[in-house]
Design a protein around this nucleic acid. Structure first.
Lengths: 228, 228
DNA sequence: CGTCGGGTTGAACTGCATCAATATAGGTGG
DNA sequence: CCACCTATATTGATGCAGTTCAACCCGACG
Protein backbone atom coordinates (compact mmCIF):
# COMPACT_ATOMS: atom_id res chain seq x y z
CA UNK A 1 0.00 0.00 0.00
CA UNK A 2 1.53 3.18 -1.16
CA UNK A 3 1.45 6.74 0.04
CA UNK A 4 -0.04 9.41 -2.13
CA UNK A 5 2.41 11.31 -4.29
CA UNK A 6 3.52 14.37 -2.37
CA UNK A 7 4.61 17.80 -3.39
CA UNK A 8 2.41 19.85 -5.65
CA UNK A 9 -0.97 19.35 -4.13
CA UNK A 10 0.43 18.33 -0.83
CA UNK A 11 2.12 21.65 -0.67
CA UNK A 12 -1.14 23.04 -1.92
CA UNK A 13 -3.03 21.36 0.91
CA UNK A 14 -1.40 22.94 3.86
CA UNK A 15 -2.56 25.61 6.20
CA UNK A 16 -1.17 29.17 6.17
CA UNK A 17 2.38 29.18 7.42
CA UNK A 18 4.50 31.57 9.47
CA UNK A 19 5.91 32.53 6.08
CA UNK A 20 9.65 32.84 6.33
CA UNK A 21 10.89 33.39 2.86
CA UNK A 22 13.09 34.11 0.90
CA UNK A 23 15.45 31.41 2.09
CA UNK A 24 18.40 33.68 2.73
CA UNK A 25 16.65 34.69 5.93
CA UNK A 26 17.47 31.19 7.08
CA UNK A 27 14.48 29.67 8.72
CA UNK A 28 16.49 26.95 10.33
CA UNK A 29 13.53 24.65 10.22
CA UNK A 30 14.35 21.08 9.49
CA UNK A 31 12.81 17.67 9.67
CA UNK A 32 12.99 16.21 13.16
CA UNK A 33 14.47 12.73 13.43
CA UNK A 34 11.24 11.26 14.73
CA UNK A 35 9.26 11.87 11.54
CA UNK A 36 10.77 8.82 9.92
CA UNK A 37 12.74 5.69 10.31
CA UNK A 38 16.51 5.69 10.68
CA UNK A 39 17.93 2.93 8.54
CA UNK A 40 21.40 1.51 8.12
CA UNK A 41 23.00 0.66 4.80
CA UNK A 42 26.19 -1.24 4.10
CA UNK A 43 28.89 -0.16 1.67
CA UNK A 44 27.50 -0.25 -1.87
CA UNK A 45 24.00 -1.08 -0.74
CA UNK A 46 21.18 0.42 -2.77
CA UNK A 47 18.87 2.81 -0.95
CA UNK A 48 16.49 3.19 -3.85
CA UNK A 49 16.64 2.42 -7.56
CA UNK A 50 16.06 4.38 -10.71
CA UNK A 51 12.45 4.05 -11.79
CA UNK A 52 11.18 2.82 -8.44
CA UNK A 53 8.16 4.46 -6.94
CA UNK A 54 9.27 7.50 -4.99
CA UNK A 55 7.22 7.44 -1.84
CA UNK A 56 9.96 8.45 0.54
CA UNK A 57 12.30 11.32 1.13
CA UNK A 58 15.80 10.73 2.50
CA UNK A 59 18.28 12.52 4.69
CA UNK A 60 21.81 11.40 5.46
CA UNK A 61 22.40 10.99 9.17
CA UNK A 62 25.95 9.66 8.91
CA UNK A 63 28.20 8.42 6.12
CA UNK A 64 28.06 9.27 2.42
CA UNK A 65 25.60 8.50 -0.31
CA UNK A 66 25.92 8.75 -4.08
CA UNK A 67 22.99 9.29 -6.40
CA UNK A 68 23.42 8.35 -10.02
CA UNK A 69 21.65 7.66 -13.25
CA UNK A 70 22.37 5.04 -15.86
CA UNK A 71 22.03 6.72 -19.23
CA UNK A 72 20.66 5.06 -22.36
CA UNK A 73 24.16 4.29 -23.63
CA UNK A 74 25.00 2.49 -20.41
CA UNK A 75 27.21 5.21 -18.98
CA UNK A 76 26.79 6.16 -15.38
CA UNK A 77 26.24 9.79 -14.51
CA UNK A 78 26.77 10.53 -10.84
CA UNK A 79 24.44 13.37 -9.95
CA UNK A 80 25.92 14.08 -6.58
CA UNK A 81 27.41 12.94 -3.32
CA UNK A 82 25.43 13.52 -0.15
CA UNK A 83 26.80 13.68 3.35
CA UNK A 84 25.42 14.08 6.84
CA UNK A 85 22.61 16.59 7.01
CA UNK A 86 21.91 16.61 3.29
CA UNK A 87 18.69 15.48 1.67
CA UNK A 88 18.27 13.33 -1.41
CA UNK A 89 15.62 11.41 -3.30
CA UNK A 90 13.33 14.42 -3.77
CA UNK A 91 11.49 13.87 -7.01
CA UNK A 92 9.52 15.81 -9.55
CA UNK A 93 7.00 13.09 -10.10
CA UNK A 94 6.15 9.82 -8.45
CA UNK A 95 9.12 7.74 -9.50
CA UNK A 96 12.84 8.05 -8.80
CA UNK A 97 14.79 9.39 -11.76
CA UNK A 98 18.04 8.12 -10.25
CA UNK A 99 19.41 5.47 -7.94
CA UNK A 100 21.10 6.03 -4.60
CA UNK A 101 23.72 3.90 -2.88
CA UNK A 102 25.69 4.10 0.32
CA UNK A 103 29.36 4.83 -0.39
CA UNK A 104 30.33 3.24 2.88
CA UNK A 105 28.37 2.23 5.94
CA UNK A 106 25.71 4.90 6.25
CA UNK A 107 22.66 5.73 8.32
CA UNK A 108 19.78 7.44 6.58
CA UNK A 109 16.57 8.99 7.81
CA UNK A 110 13.74 7.71 5.64
CA UNK A 111 10.55 9.75 5.71
CA UNK A 112 7.38 8.52 4.08
CA UNK A 113 5.64 11.05 1.93
CA UNK A 114 2.36 10.23 3.59
CA UNK A 115 3.82 11.16 6.96
CA UNK A 116 5.26 14.34 5.55
CA UNK A 117 1.95 15.10 3.97
CA UNK A 118 0.19 14.82 7.28
CA UNK A 119 2.87 16.83 9.00
CA UNK A 120 2.73 19.55 6.39
CA UNK A 121 -0.96 20.12 6.95
CA UNK A 122 -0.16 20.99 10.55
CA UNK A 123 3.15 22.80 10.12
CA UNK A 124 3.33 24.95 7.03
CA UNK A 125 7.02 25.58 7.34
CA UNK A 126 7.61 21.94 6.45
CA UNK A 127 6.15 22.66 3.04
CA UNK A 128 8.46 25.64 2.80
CA UNK A 129 11.37 23.39 3.69
CA UNK A 130 10.42 20.87 1.05
CA UNK A 131 10.12 23.51 -1.61
CA UNK A 132 13.45 24.96 -0.66
CA UNK A 133 15.09 21.53 -0.82
CA UNK A 134 13.69 20.95 -4.28
CA UNK A 135 14.96 24.33 -5.41
CA UNK A 136 18.41 23.61 -4.00
CA UNK A 137 18.51 20.67 -6.37
CA UNK A 138 17.80 23.02 -9.25
CA UNK A 139 20.57 25.31 -8.09
CA UNK A 140 23.03 22.44 -7.95
CA UNK A 141 22.00 21.26 -11.40
CA UNK A 142 22.74 24.69 -12.82
CA UNK A 143 26.18 24.69 -11.26
CA UNK A 144 26.77 21.23 -12.68
CA UNK A 145 25.84 22.54 -16.13
CA UNK A 146 28.20 25.49 -15.78
CA UNK A 147 30.96 23.07 -14.79
CA UNK A 148 30.35 20.67 -17.65
CA UNK A 149 29.90 23.37 -20.23
CA UNK A 150 33.33 24.96 -20.10
CA UNK A 151 35.65 23.75 -17.36
CA UNK A 152 38.85 21.85 -18.07
CA UNK A 153 39.74 18.60 -16.36
CA UNK A 154 42.05 20.46 -14.00
CA UNK A 155 39.42 23.02 -13.03
CA UNK A 156 36.88 20.27 -12.48
CA UNK A 157 39.11 18.23 -10.21
CA UNK A 158 40.29 21.27 -8.24
CA UNK A 159 36.72 22.47 -7.85
CA UNK A 160 35.65 19.02 -6.76
CA UNK A 161 38.30 18.83 -4.05
CA UNK A 162 37.39 22.27 -2.71
CA UNK A 163 33.71 21.43 -2.73
CA UNK A 164 34.27 18.18 -0.90
CA UNK A 165 36.58 19.83 1.62
CA UNK A 166 34.06 22.54 2.35
CA UNK A 167 31.13 20.20 2.73
CA UNK A 168 33.09 17.75 4.85
CA UNK A 169 34.45 20.63 6.97
CA UNK A 170 37.98 19.52 6.15
CA UNK A 171 40.54 22.27 6.55
CA UNK A 172 43.45 20.47 4.97
CA UNK A 173 43.32 16.71 5.12
CA UNK A 174 40.45 15.33 3.10
CA UNK A 175 39.20 11.76 3.25
CA UNK A 176 37.38 10.89 0.09
CA UNK A 177 34.95 8.01 0.52
CA UNK A 178 34.48 7.54 -3.21
CA UNK A 179 36.56 5.77 -5.85
CA UNK A 180 38.30 7.44 -8.78
CA UNK A 181 35.59 5.98 -10.97
CA UNK A 182 32.95 7.73 -8.88
CA UNK A 183 34.78 11.03 -9.23
CA UNK A 184 35.17 10.51 -12.96
CA UNK A 185 31.47 9.76 -13.40
CA UNK A 186 30.59 12.84 -11.41
CA UNK A 187 32.89 15.17 -13.33
CA UNK A 188 32.24 13.51 -16.68
CA UNK A 189 35.87 12.58 -17.18
CA UNK A 190 37.63 9.24 -17.45
CA UNK A 191 39.21 7.56 -14.48
CA UNK A 192 42.62 7.98 -16.14
CA UNK A 193 42.19 11.70 -16.54
CA UNK A 194 41.13 12.10 -12.92
CA UNK A 195 44.15 10.12 -11.78
CA UNK A 196 46.55 12.01 -14.03
CA UNK A 197 45.13 15.36 -12.96
CA UNK A 198 45.50 14.53 -9.30
CA UNK A 199 49.09 13.43 -9.92
CA UNK A 200 49.74 16.69 -11.72
CA UNK A 201 48.27 18.76 -8.89
CA UNK A 202 50.53 16.88 -6.53
CA UNK A 203 53.57 17.44 -8.74
CA UNK A 204 52.74 21.15 -8.78
CA UNK A 205 52.65 21.16 -5.01
CA UNK A 206 48.99 22.13 -4.72
CA UNK A 207 47.97 18.93 -3.02
CA UNK A 208 49.52 15.91 -1.40
CA UNK A 209 48.25 12.36 -1.76
CA UNK A 210 49.60 10.24 1.11
CA UNK A 211 47.11 7.51 0.30
CA UNK A 212 44.91 7.43 -2.76
CA UNK A 213 41.74 8.40 -0.94
CA UNK A 214 43.45 10.76 1.44
CA UNK A 215 44.24 14.14 0.00
CA UNK A 216 45.89 17.09 1.67
CA UNK A 217 45.17 20.55 0.32
CA UNK A 218 48.55 22.29 0.44
CA UNK A 219 47.74 25.44 -1.48
CA UNK A 220 44.10 26.24 -1.21
CA UNK A 221 44.42 29.67 -2.81
CA UNK A 222 46.04 28.26 -5.91
CA UNK A 223 43.30 25.66 -6.13
CA UNK A 224 40.67 28.36 -5.85
CA UNK A 225 42.35 30.49 -8.51
CA UNK A 226 42.32 27.49 -10.76
CA UNK A 227 38.56 27.21 -10.51
CA UNK A 228 38.28 30.87 -11.48
CA UNK B 1 7.46 49.47 -4.65
CA UNK B 2 8.04 45.78 -4.99
CA UNK B 3 5.86 42.74 -4.68
CA UNK B 4 6.56 40.15 -2.04
CA UNK B 5 8.70 37.25 -3.13
CA UNK B 6 6.47 34.40 -4.16
CA UNK B 7 6.81 30.66 -4.14
CA UNK B 8 7.57 28.79 -0.98
CA UNK B 9 5.24 30.36 1.50
CA UNK B 10 2.96 31.57 -1.17
CA UNK B 11 2.51 28.01 -2.18
CA UNK B 12 2.21 27.30 1.50
CA UNK B 13 -0.51 29.90 1.89
CA UNK B 14 -3.10 28.57 -0.41
CA UNK B 15 -6.33 26.79 0.16
CA UNK B 16 -6.83 23.06 -0.52
CA UNK B 17 -6.79 22.40 -4.24
CA UNK B 18 -8.65 20.00 -6.55
CA UNK B 19 -5.41 18.07 -6.42
CA UNK B 20 -4.59 16.73 -9.83
CA UNK B 21 -1.10 15.38 -9.60
CA UNK B 22 1.22 13.84 -10.77
CA UNK B 23 1.55 16.01 -13.83
CA UNK B 24 1.29 13.27 -16.41
CA UNK B 25 -2.44 13.34 -15.78
CA UNK B 26 -2.36 16.74 -17.42
CA UNK B 27 -4.40 19.17 -15.42
CA UNK B 28 -4.63 21.60 -18.27
CA UNK B 29 -4.78 24.43 -15.80
CA UNK B 30 -2.87 27.46 -16.91
CA UNK B 31 -2.54 31.12 -16.22
CA UNK B 32 -5.28 33.15 -17.93
CA UNK B 33 -4.08 36.05 -20.04
CA UNK B 34 -5.79 38.62 -17.86
CA UNK B 35 -3.63 37.95 -14.79
CA UNK B 36 -0.82 40.04 -16.22
CA UNK B 37 0.29 42.48 -18.80
CA UNK B 38 1.03 41.46 -22.36
CA UNK B 39 4.20 43.20 -23.47
CA UNK B 40 5.96 43.43 -26.77
CA UNK B 41 9.71 43.12 -27.23
CA UNK B 42 11.82 43.82 -30.28
CA UNK B 43 14.51 41.54 -31.66
CA UNK B 44 17.37 41.32 -29.18
CA UNK B 45 15.58 43.34 -26.52
CA UNK B 46 16.18 42.35 -22.95
CA UNK B 47 13.17 41.14 -20.99
CA UNK B 48 15.03 40.89 -17.71
CA UNK B 49 18.66 40.83 -16.70
CA UNK B 50 20.82 38.52 -14.64
CA UNK B 51 20.85 39.69 -11.03
CA UNK B 52 17.76 41.85 -11.30
CA UNK B 53 15.03 41.49 -8.76
CA UNK B 54 12.71 38.71 -9.83
CA UNK B 55 9.25 40.00 -9.08
CA UNK B 56 7.60 38.74 -12.22
CA UNK B 57 6.93 35.48 -13.98
CA UNK B 58 6.87 35.32 -17.78
CA UNK B 59 5.08 33.36 -20.45
CA UNK B 60 5.72 33.54 -24.15
CA UNK B 61 2.61 34.49 -26.10
CA UNK B 62 4.25 34.65 -29.50
CA UNK B 63 7.81 34.59 -30.84
CA UNK B 64 10.89 33.09 -29.23
CA UNK B 65 12.90 33.98 -26.16
CA UNK B 66 16.37 32.90 -25.08
CA UNK B 67 17.49 32.80 -21.47
CA UNK B 68 21.19 32.82 -20.79
CA UNK B 69 23.83 33.33 -18.18
CA UNK B 70 27.16 35.05 -18.44
CA UNK B 71 29.67 32.90 -16.59
CA UNK B 72 32.61 34.21 -14.57
CA UNK B 73 35.00 33.68 -17.47
CA UNK B 74 32.80 35.77 -19.75
CA UNK B 75 31.38 32.89 -21.72
CA UNK B 76 27.69 32.83 -22.41
CA UNK B 77 25.71 29.75 -21.47
CA UNK B 78 22.29 29.64 -23.08
CA UNK B 79 19.99 27.84 -20.70
CA UNK B 80 17.14 27.43 -23.07
CA UNK B 81 14.91 28.70 -25.81
CA UNK B 82 11.28 29.36 -25.03
CA UNK B 83 8.44 29.50 -27.47
CA UNK B 84 4.74 30.24 -27.38
CA UNK B 85 3.05 28.75 -24.37
CA UNK B 86 6.23 28.18 -22.41
CA UNK B 87 7.13 29.86 -19.14
CA UNK B 88 10.42 31.38 -18.10
CA UNK B 89 11.92 33.56 -15.41
CA UNK B 90 10.83 31.31 -12.56
CA UNK B 91 13.42 31.69 -9.84
CA UNK B 92 14.61 29.91 -6.75
CA UNK B 93 15.12 33.07 -4.80
CA UNK B 94 14.28 36.71 -5.29
CA UNK B 95 16.72 37.62 -8.05
CA UNK B 96 17.09 36.41 -11.61
CA UNK B 97 19.98 33.99 -12.07
CA UNK B 98 19.90 34.55 -15.83
CA UNK B 99 18.95 37.09 -18.45
CA UNK B 100 16.23 36.75 -21.06
CA UNK B 101 16.02 38.32 -24.49
CA UNK B 102 13.59 38.21 -27.38
CA UNK B 103 15.11 36.31 -30.31
CA UNK B 104 12.87 38.20 -32.70
CA UNK B 105 9.77 40.31 -32.21
CA UNK B 106 7.95 38.64 -29.34
CA UNK B 107 4.96 39.16 -27.11
CA UNK B 108 5.23 38.05 -23.54
CA UNK B 109 2.75 37.78 -20.71
CA UNK B 110 4.26 39.36 -17.63
CA UNK B 111 2.69 38.38 -14.33
CA UNK B 112 3.60 40.12 -11.11
CA UNK B 113 4.33 37.80 -8.26
CA UNK B 114 2.05 39.83 -6.02
CA UNK B 115 -0.86 39.22 -8.38
CA UNK B 116 -0.03 35.55 -8.57
CA UNK B 117 0.22 35.43 -4.84
CA UNK B 118 -3.26 36.84 -4.47
CA UNK B 119 -4.60 34.57 -7.15
CA UNK B 120 -3.06 31.52 -5.57
CA UNK B 121 -4.84 32.13 -2.29
CA UNK B 122 -8.13 31.83 -4.14
CA UNK B 123 -7.30 29.12 -6.68
CA UNK B 124 -5.07 26.42 -5.33
CA UNK B 125 -4.40 24.84 -8.67
CA UNK B 126 -2.38 27.90 -9.60
CA UNK B 127 0.08 26.98 -6.88
CA UNK B 128 0.16 23.47 -8.28
CA UNK B 129 0.86 24.91 -11.69
CA UNK B 130 3.70 27.04 -10.37
CA UNK B 131 5.30 24.14 -8.61
CA UNK B 132 5.02 22.02 -11.70
CA UNK B 133 6.63 24.72 -13.79
CA UNK B 134 9.54 25.00 -11.40
CA UNK B 135 9.99 21.24 -11.45
CA UNK B 136 9.92 21.18 -15.24
CA UNK B 137 12.94 23.45 -15.09
CA UNK B 138 14.72 20.88 -12.93
CA UNK B 139 13.81 18.16 -15.39
CA UNK B 140 15.21 20.16 -18.28
CA UNK B 141 18.40 20.87 -16.36
CA UNK B 142 18.92 17.17 -15.82
CA UNK B 143 18.51 16.48 -19.49
CA UNK B 144 20.96 19.25 -20.25
CA UNK B 145 23.47 17.62 -17.91
CA UNK B 146 23.00 14.25 -19.59
CA UNK B 147 23.58 15.91 -22.95
CA UNK B 148 26.69 17.76 -21.87
CA UNK B 149 28.16 14.85 -20.00
CA UNK B 150 28.60 12.41 -22.84
CA UNK B 151 27.13 13.42 -26.18
CA UNK B 152 29.24 14.14 -29.23
CA UNK B 153 28.84 17.28 -31.33
CA UNK B 154 26.85 15.32 -33.86
CA UNK B 155 24.48 13.88 -31.30
CA UNK B 156 24.00 17.28 -29.74
CA UNK B 157 23.12 18.98 -32.98
CA UNK B 158 20.82 16.18 -34.13
CA UNK B 159 19.10 16.16 -30.77
CA UNK B 160 18.75 19.90 -30.87
CA UNK B 161 17.08 19.84 -34.27
CA UNK B 162 14.63 17.16 -33.20
CA UNK B 163 13.82 19.00 -30.00
CA UNK B 164 13.21 22.23 -31.83
CA UNK B 165 11.11 20.52 -34.49
CA UNK B 166 8.97 18.86 -31.87
CA UNK B 167 8.41 21.98 -29.83
CA UNK B 168 7.71 24.12 -32.87
CA UNK B 169 5.37 21.45 -34.26
CA UNK B 170 7.45 21.28 -37.41
CA UNK B 171 7.04 18.04 -39.31
CA UNK B 172 9.84 18.55 -41.79
CA UNK B 173 10.71 22.18 -42.51
CA UNK B 174 12.11 23.89 -39.47
CA UNK B 175 12.60 27.64 -39.12
CA UNK B 176 15.23 28.37 -36.53
CA UNK B 177 14.95 31.85 -35.09
CA UNK B 178 18.36 31.70 -33.42
CA UNK B 179 21.87 32.22 -34.76
CA UNK B 180 24.57 29.58 -34.97
CA UNK B 181 26.22 31.31 -32.02
CA UNK B 182 23.05 30.84 -29.99
CA UNK B 183 22.97 27.16 -30.86
CA UNK B 184 26.65 26.82 -30.01
CA UNK B 185 26.20 28.49 -26.63
CA UNK B 186 23.26 26.26 -25.89
CA UNK B 187 25.03 23.03 -26.84
CA UNK B 188 28.39 24.11 -25.40
CA UNK B 189 30.14 23.84 -28.75
CA UNK B 190 31.81 26.43 -30.95
CA UNK B 191 30.00 28.13 -33.79
CA UNK B 192 32.38 26.45 -36.24
CA UNK B 193 31.60 22.99 -34.93
CA UNK B 194 27.87 23.61 -35.16
CA UNK B 195 28.23 24.81 -38.72
CA UNK B 196 30.47 21.94 -39.73
CA UNK B 197 28.17 19.40 -38.11
CA UNK B 198 25.14 20.78 -39.92
CA UNK B 199 27.05 20.67 -43.20
CA UNK B 200 28.00 17.08 -42.48
CA UNK B 201 24.41 16.11 -41.71
CA UNK B 202 23.42 17.67 -45.00
CA UNK B 203 26.18 15.85 -46.87
CA UNK B 204 24.94 12.60 -45.32
CA UNK B 205 21.44 13.34 -46.56
CA UNK B 206 19.86 13.54 -43.12
CA UNK B 207 18.89 17.17 -43.46
CA UNK B 208 18.70 19.86 -46.08
CA UNK B 209 19.64 23.50 -45.51
CA UNK B 210 17.97 25.65 -48.18
CA UNK B 211 18.76 28.78 -46.17
CA UNK B 212 20.97 28.88 -43.13
CA UNK B 213 18.12 29.23 -40.67
CA UNK B 214 15.77 27.00 -42.56
CA UNK B 215 16.38 23.32 -42.08
CA UNK B 216 14.51 20.39 -43.58
CA UNK B 217 14.59 17.09 -41.73
CA UNK B 218 14.97 14.52 -44.49
CA UNK B 219 15.63 11.42 -42.41
CA UNK B 220 14.10 11.77 -39.01
CA UNK B 221 14.71 8.15 -38.03
CA UNK B 222 18.42 8.41 -38.71
CA UNK B 223 18.54 11.60 -36.67
CA UNK B 224 16.78 9.89 -33.81
CA UNK B 225 19.12 6.91 -33.97
CA UNK B 226 21.99 9.30 -33.76
CA UNK B 227 20.80 10.79 -30.48
CA UNK B 228 20.37 7.47 -28.77
C1' DC C 1 53.22 -15.76 -1.33
C1' DG C 2 49.74 -15.19 -4.85
C1' DT C 3 45.67 -12.99 -6.28
C1' DC C 4 42.50 -9.38 -7.12
C1' DG C 5 40.44 -4.74 -7.25
C1' DG C 6 41.67 -0.16 -7.42
C1' DG C 7 44.95 3.14 -8.93
C1' DT C 8 48.74 5.02 -11.76
C1' DT C 9 51.39 5.79 -15.83
C1' DG C 10 52.61 5.53 -20.80
C1' DA C 11 51.77 5.94 -25.86
C1' DA C 12 48.91 6.80 -29.63
C1' DC C 13 44.67 8.60 -31.41
C1' DT C 14 40.85 11.76 -32.18
C1' DG C 15 37.24 15.09 -31.80
C1' DC C 16 36.68 19.51 -31.00
C1' DA C 17 38.73 24.17 -30.40
C1' DT C 18 41.37 27.61 -32.33
C1' DC C 19 43.01 30.63 -35.76
C1' DA C 20 42.40 32.30 -40.30
C1' DA C 21 40.37 33.03 -44.70
C1' DT C 22 36.38 33.22 -47.50
C1' DA C 23 31.44 33.24 -48.64
C1' DT C 24 26.67 34.68 -48.21
C1' DA C 25 22.71 37.30 -46.73
C1' DG C 26 20.33 41.54 -45.21
C1' DG C 27 20.20 46.13 -45.01
C1' DT C 28 21.31 50.98 -46.49
C1' DG C 29 22.22 54.76 -49.36
C1' DG C 30 23.28 56.44 -53.87
C1' DC D 1 18.64 48.59 -59.25
C1' DC D 2 23.24 48.19 -57.99
C1' DA D 3 27.30 48.99 -54.91
C1' DC D 4 28.68 48.70 -50.58
C1' DC D 5 28.79 47.32 -45.79
C1' DT D 6 28.32 44.67 -41.84
C1' DA D 7 26.41 40.47 -39.79
C1' DT D 8 26.40 35.88 -39.98
C1' DA D 9 27.86 31.61 -41.75
C1' DT D 10 30.97 28.29 -43.98
C1' DT D 11 35.26 26.04 -44.85
C1' DG D 12 40.21 24.99 -44.22
C1' DA D 13 44.49 24.01 -41.55
C1' DT D 14 46.54 23.11 -37.27
C1' DG D 15 47.00 22.06 -32.33
C1' DC D 16 45.84 20.12 -28.11
C1' DA D 17 43.13 18.25 -24.18
C1' DG D 18 41.20 14.31 -22.99
C1' DT D 19 40.01 9.54 -24.51
C1' DT D 20 41.39 5.00 -25.47
C1' DC D 21 44.08 1.00 -25.08
C1' DA D 22 47.55 -1.21 -22.59
C1' DA D 23 50.93 -2.15 -19.16
C1' DC D 24 52.22 -1.81 -14.61
C1' DC D 25 51.95 -0.87 -9.56
C1' DC D 26 50.32 -1.26 -4.95
C1' DG D 27 47.92 -2.55 -0.87
C1' DA D 28 44.53 -5.71 1.19
C1' DC D 29 43.46 -10.23 2.15
C1' DG D 30 43.21 -15.16 1.55
Amino acid sequence: MYAEPLYAQQIANIAPAPAVFPPHIGTGDDLPLDVGQVMHFARGEEIFGQGERADCLYKVVSGWVRSYRILRDGRRQIEGFHLAGEYFGIETDDSHHCSAEALGPATVLVVRRSVLNELATRRGNIATTLFRLAMQGLQRSREHIAMLSHKSACERVAGFLLDMAERADAVKALDLPMSRQDIADYLSLTIETVSRTLSQLQADGLIDIPRSRNIVLRDRLALEDMCE
